Amino acid sequence: MKNAFFFTQRVAEEICFSWFLLALRLLFGGLLLMHGIMKIIDFYVLSVSFPDPLGIGSTYSLALAIFAEAACSCAFILGLLFRLSLLPMITTMAVAFWGVHGGSISGGELAFVFLVVFILLWISGPGLFSIDKLLFGQKERPRYSRYLH
């Protein structure tokens, strides 16, 4: 009966962590979305000069970057197919950091920061406040209560 009115410490910590994950999704997803929107707006100008580290052509490289930065970041923000949406985002930031900027922090600092944050969020998952949680739920984890106290 006590748990019906008061959160246990574990539940409270999970809720706080989920708020933190939501804040990270909104912040970093919103920032990447802004980059994608700017690329959409300047598509015709950028398509002739956009870096082509994969050798597929500037237009296709730009289209892939827009997909990752605009479409996937929207799904990322909502927590919809979270880890699947992170794959193109992580790939794009890895290509930007190593392929375009040559692994240089001085030139590719932003891509590196995005890459690290996205990898850490891949590991953590979307949290409780996500569409994935609503659609798929969460499997009950084994309770090793003697290890959690």
Rank of each mutant, 00 (worst) to 15 (best):
L86W: 12
S18G: 03
I105T: 10
L64T: 11
E69R: 04
S49G: 07
R10E: 15
F50K: 01
F7G: 11
P51C: 14
L62E: 03
G57S: 05
S130A: 02
S18Q: 08
F97P: 01
F112Q: 07
S106D: 13
S145I: 14
L21W: 03
K2W: 12
R10K: 15
I56T: 04
L121I: 06
F112L: 15
G102T: 09
S145C: 10
V11F: 11
Y144H: 09
F136K: 12
R141M: 12
A75T: 06
G55D: 07
M1V: 13
Q9E: 15
T59P: 05
F97D: 07
M1K: 11
E13T: 11
C74I: 13
H101T: 01
L87H: 04
L120P: 02
Y60I: 14
E14N: 15
Y144R: 14
L31W: 06
F7R: 11
I123E: 01
L121A: 00
A23W: 04
I105E: 09
I41P: 00
F17W: 15
F82N: 00
M93S: 14
A111G: 01
E14M: 07
R146H: 12
G127I: 05
P126F: 01
Q9P: 13
Y44C: 08
L26S: 03
L26E: 00
F50C: 00
L134W: 01
L32D: 05
F67A: 14
A75W: 05
L27S: 08
F114L: 04
W122Q: 05
S58K: 10
T59V: 10
Y144W: 12
L87C: 01
L87S: 03
V48W: 13
S18L: 07
F5V: 13
L121F: 09
F67D: 10
F5G: 04
L27M: 11
L54V: 08
Q9F: 10
G125N: 05
H149P: 02
F118V: 02
V95R: 02
I123D: 05
I41W: 03
I37H: 01
V95H: 06
S18H: 06
L87E: 02
Y60T: 14
L81M: 12
L148P: 05
M93P: 00
L62N: 06
F76C: 01
G103Y: 04
I131C: 08
L21A: 02
E109T: 05
L87D: 05
L110D: 06
F67H: 08
V45T: 14
G55W: 02
L27E: 03
F43R: 04
K39M: 00
L33F: 14
V116W: 09
F28N: 01
Q138E: 14
C72I: 05
G108E: 04
G125D: 07
R83A: 00
M34E: 09
E69Y: 00
F76R: 00
E109A: 13
P51H: 15
G57E: 10
